[in-house]
Amino acid sequence: MLVIKNLHANVEGREILRGIDLTVNAGEVHAIMGPNGSGKSTLAHILAGREGYEVTEGQVLYQGKDLLAMAPEERAREGIFLAFQYPLEIPGVNTTYFLKAALNAIRKHRSQPELDAMDFLALVKEKTKLVEMDQSLLNRPINEGFSGGEKKRNEIFQMALLDPKLAILDETDSGLDIDALRVVAGGVNALRSPERAMVLITHYQRLLNYIVPDYVHVLSEGRIVKSGDKRLAQELEEKGYGWVEG
């Protein structure tokens, strides 16, 4: 589904990614771990199409297509979803209105009929249950007045609603208490499927107690320095990042 080959990227002239190779197949869950500044979030942003990164070498293929040539909205419509590390508050923009427009843009792209207000609300009701989210929050502007945990739940709710093929979760576990973490992880687990791939980016091993990955990769100074299965995460937890960086 996703093939990253020798990806190099700069931010403001500084090289952050120094040759990433990674292959993710449908149905797999990959965890990418690494210390602060290792390039984890940069990788997530480049995959989702954020501006401000200069790819200097390498390529990214998504379902056989050149991902880097696609606009962010094309990627979303083709099934890529990024759960943000720091979800924004956007005053004045109603959450329900925005999500209906987003979902219908994606459905249109997939040649599915657009949902009317009633069908949309039914779908929303079903998906909010998944992350135990208070549906009334959706009547507010995007994330306005949400707690940290509510913002993260909202990201997972959006993922459930938009039904992506490849979900990238950027430090979704950061700043969550254990109850919120359990709810968020429960939502993610419910969305695991043979058709869907997930990339979990995290700083902490804790998340992986709740979402068990098929593969774990350690990112350090812009390269994947170690790959393994879930036991690698345990080992990292015991020995610290110094072990792989050294």
Partner: peptide
């Protein structure tokens, strides 16, 4: 970027934020 990452095109994203 957030709105586009959810599938809205640039035009719709600008419109929605401005309206907001």
């Amino acid at each position: 970027f957030f709105l586009r990452s959810r599938g809205l095109d640039l035009h719709a994203a600008i419109g929605l934020l401005t309206q907001g």
